[in-house]
Design a protein around this nucleic acid. Sequence first.
DNA 1: TTGTACGCGTTATCAT
DNA 2: ATGATAACGCGTACAA
Lengths: 349, 349
Amino acid sequence: MSTRRATISDVAREAGVSASTASVVFSGKTPTSEATRARVLAAAEALGYTGPDPRAASLRRGRSGIVGVVFDTHLGTAFLDPVTTHMMDGLADGVSRLGAALLLLRDDGETVSEPSLHTAPIDAAVLIGCSPRMRDSLEIVRGRGIPVVVVEGDAGEGVPRVLLDNAEAQRAAAQHVADLGHHDVVLVTLPIDTSRRRGWVAADEPVRVDVTADRLAGAREVFPHAPVLAAATSSIDEGTIAGRTIFADPSRRPTAVIAQSDLLAAGVIRAAEETGLRVPHDVSVTGFDGVVVDGLAPHVLTTLVQPATAKGRAAGEAVAAMLEDAEPSGLDLKCTFRAGTTTAPPPTT
Amino acid sequence: MSTRRATISDVAREAGVSASTASVVFSGKTPTSEATRARVLAAAEALGYTGPDPRAASLRRGRSGIVGVVFDTHLGTAFLDPVTTHMMDGLADGVSRLGAALLLLRDDGETVSEPSLHTAPIDAAVLIGCSPRMRDSLEIVRGRGIPVVVVEGDAGEGVPRVLLDNAEAQRAAAQHVADLGHHDVVLVTLPIDTSRRRGWVAADEPVRVDVTADRLAGAREVFPHAPVLAAATSSIDEGTIAGRTIFADPSRRPTAVIAQSDLLAAGVIRAAEETGLRVPHDVSVTGFDGVVVDGLAPHVLTTLVQPATAKGRAAGEAVAAMLEDAEPSGLDLKCTFRAGTTTAPPPTT
DNA sequence: TTGTACGCGTTATCAT
DNA sequence: ATGATAACGCGTACAA
């Protein structure tokens, strides 16, 4: 229909004012007389002008109002994890003071498409995760001079980070289990490296994923010699697989299982009940995250409640601070122990 | 540190060429001699220039390379649904030809923050869902002259839509159940309106959510008089609640339950087993969506596999087409029936 | 192959 | 309260 969209100058001309006045009417940065305001708005209406072009505005302002969220994994996969989901929730909230929207970006290192991390019109970036790739992403973004916050990942100096007290929290949970009287414990971990190998982990085997390593270290402070079983991912079904492995041999059944995520714990519980073991009567199980595990009822998992939403919000607020030239403030968040119905003293043999 | 970021003219000056030449080196739109190319790149390196400013580039090009994804619900909530998750996956894929990134937008109608639907620098938009709000969002976007695609929602003329054959698919599943010999069936539905009321639905009660209404209509073609129980949301726990309601009275137990989502079906199965009923021996259950329900194993749900990823991809491709001035092509996708292990003939009394 | 000239649409600044 | 001016940083005809 129309040959070209109306611009603010068109509107200004139509209203008989200057372009700057029209601009001011829309931005509200400067008081305007009610009369001109009305005229400009009417002109806009007549011309079908719906407001300043965001591209031009952001060029002029030097801000796009967009915060990039960078994942190192397929986006679909990322959102499968409730913790990520909640974090996004908090992130959306945290940047809301800025009034920024979130741009989903994936840096798999071989993206041909644009806008990539190199070219996206973002004012700041939040890097999620802790794979080795993240380091590269970090370099790219910093090279562009864009403020960045890293969530639960390794980063260089001067990069604000949002971290969890993974080790200490897991130690506390392990201590709880120990206090109940358990000695015979198995640890079920998140993936230990990018290969996501499933199976028993040797005592000296290197663990390359920060989160896994930290939680493992915490548990080992209390149970240094507990067998360690790695899962391929954090899901109920993976937990079930791990649980079956653990409970397979009746003569070597532990009295407690410390899982590194709630999903894994739920799977372990499922496997236990499948085997005829009652939780927590025959075996105690702890999780990590404190998410709502759909289908776990009536159990209430003994777990460490991770402030996932707060994590996101903290990242968002850190970003907001940086954009307002405040000091980039990292944050160390604490998990809180939650005693549920899945732990009890070991069975009296 | 640096007082100002280098621009392409700085690089050009440093390299001893004109700005346009430098521009061409970065865009690759025009052949350049290897020598100048190298000089420009070297100059860029020296100045710490990492490429054209995306804001300026997009102003110039009239394109931002960003596609907005508009939800009518809290973002955290949206990603709780595996179908949404997979759709995002497909969407990311579908727009990848464009090389577009996805901007998460929420239009709750009262957002004060920017960029909102009004001001986001998007080339196109995908509207997800089918609440009444979507109509408003649609108007806003169309007012801006931005191409838009609606996924599974109501829309006006000329708006390409990606739809599912909800009614027909659900009818097919119901027919399958009927063919097995069931007469005594209960239907468990998704929310019927924005109030998300949980409970029995009267035969003449209006159903305001398109998806729910369509699937319900399909099932009623086969079982016109089946009792209808609405869930408050699509989750396993909601399904369990529904299941308990259904199986509470032993004298009025149906021999089959047709649920409008896999999550609900999984919950119903859980409730059935809790009551001591075996699936499918004592009661058959069907779902809808075909998502992987974590923790459902060893059952394989009889369900309608919804091409969730394809749905997203179709939306992405439709958007891509529109941006390339091709005809906006809507798409009617079909669900495929999958016979699992949760349906069987009714128990012979 | 390289350079010139111009405009993309807006807004900050400063004067009036 | 309003207007004139000058960028913001880049891409692209077109000319050389």
